[in-house]
Amino acid sequence: MGLVPPVHAQRGAPQGPPPLPRAAAPIDLTGYWVSLVTDDWRWRMVAAPRGDVLYLPVNAEGRRAANEWDPAKDEAAGEQCRAYGAGGLMHLPGRLHITWQDDRTLVVEADAGTQTRLLHFDGAAPASEPASWQGYSMAQWELDGPAPGRRGRPMNVKPVHGSLKTVTTRLKRGYFRRNGVPYSENAVLTEYWTTLTDEGVDYLVVTNLLDDPTYLAQPYVRSVQFRKQPDNKGWKPTRCEAR
C-alpha cells in the first residue's frame, strides 16, 4: 500500500505573503525627471489671459469662475499655490525627484512651487485627513501580465512591465490651468504612471484624468512626458507664483 502525501503537499506548498509594494514594483520610477513641453506650450510655459478655456471641457460654472480669476486676490489670501496642487502640478514645466519614503510610500517632489506628493499603497485616506494642495493619493501597481501567484506564476517572479495607478482625493480648490481655470474640492484625479525606453533614454509618461462635476462637463484627460536625468543638475525649487 503506497504512502498518501500530506494534504498540503497535494494542494501545493504555501506561497507566503505577497511582497511589499517597493519590492513588487514592476517599473522603476525613482530618480530625477525633467518635463518635456511637447504640446500645449502656449498654456504650460506662460499664464494665459483670464477666461481662456480653449480646448477645456469646462461647464458654465467653470467658465464663470475662470472669468473671475484674480491673481491679486489669491496673493492677498496667501493662496499663490492654487495652480500647484495635484490637479495641475504635473502639467507645469520643471523637474521631479521620485524616491521611496518607505516600503509602502512613494515621494514625488516637484521643483515647481516646491511641492511634495505622497503616494500611499496602504489604502484609503484616514477619515481625519484634511484637504490640501496635493490631497491624498492611493496607489497600486497594475501589471501587464498575470499577477504573481496566478496561472502558475510563482510569487517571487516579477512581470516584465506594468504601471502605477493613483487616485487622489481630499484636494483643496485649485487651478488645473495657471490662468485660474478651477477644479473643486470634490475633484478626483486618477493618474497612470508608466515608463518606456527609446534609444537608451528612459521616459516617464503620466496620463491624468481629472473628474469634477462642479466645474467640468466631462473628465479632462491629458498626458505629460518626462525624460530621466542622471543626476540633480538643473534641480531648482521655486516658490509658488499666482501670475
Score class of each variant (00 low, 15 high):
residue 42 R to D: 14
residue 43 W to F: 10
residue 45 M to A: 06
residue 46 V to M: 08
residue 46 V to W: 08
residue 47 A to C: 09
residue 48 A to Q: 09
residue 48 A to T: 09
residue 49 P to V: 05
residue 51 G to F: 03
residue 51 G to V: 07
residue 52 D to N: 10
residue 55 Y to R: 11
residue 55 Y to C: 01
residue 61 E to N: 09
residue 63 R to P: 03
residue 64 R to G: 13
residue 64 R to S: 10
residue 65 A to D: 05
residue 66 A to D: 02
residue 66 A to I: 00
residue 67 N to C: 11
residue 67 N to Q: 14
residue 68 E to M: 03
residue 70 D to R: 05
residue 72 A to R: 14
residue 75 E to R: 11
residue 77 A to N: 11
residue 78 G to W: 05
residue 80 Q to T: 15
residue 81 C to L: 08
residue 87 G to L: 08
residue 90 M to Y: 15
residue 92 L to M: 12
residue 93 P to I: 04
residue 98 I to Q: 08
residue 99 T to A: 15
residue 101 Q to Y: 11
residue 102 D to K: 06
residue 102 D to E: 08
residue 103 D to Y: 05
residue 103 D to Q: 07
residue 104 R to D: 15
residue 105 T to N: 15
residue 106 L to V: 02
residue 106 L to T: 01
residue 108 V to R: 00
residue 111 D to C: 04
residue 113 G to N: 04
residue 114 T to L: 04
residue 114 T to I: 03
residue 114 T to F: 06
residue 115 Q to A: 13
residue 118 L to I: 00
residue 118 L to Y: 13
residue 120 H to T: 09
residue 123 G to P: 13
residue 125 A to I: 01
residue 127 A to P: 05
residue 134 Q to L: 14
residue 143 L to P: 07
residue 147 A to F: 07
residue 150 R to I: 01
residue 150 R to T: 15
residue 152 G to C: 04
residue 152 G to N: 08
residue 155 M to E: 11
residue 157 V to E: 01
residue 158 K to W: 06
residue 159 P to Q: 05
residue 162 G to A: 01
residue 162 G to T: 02
residue 165 K to A: 09
residue 165 K to H: 00
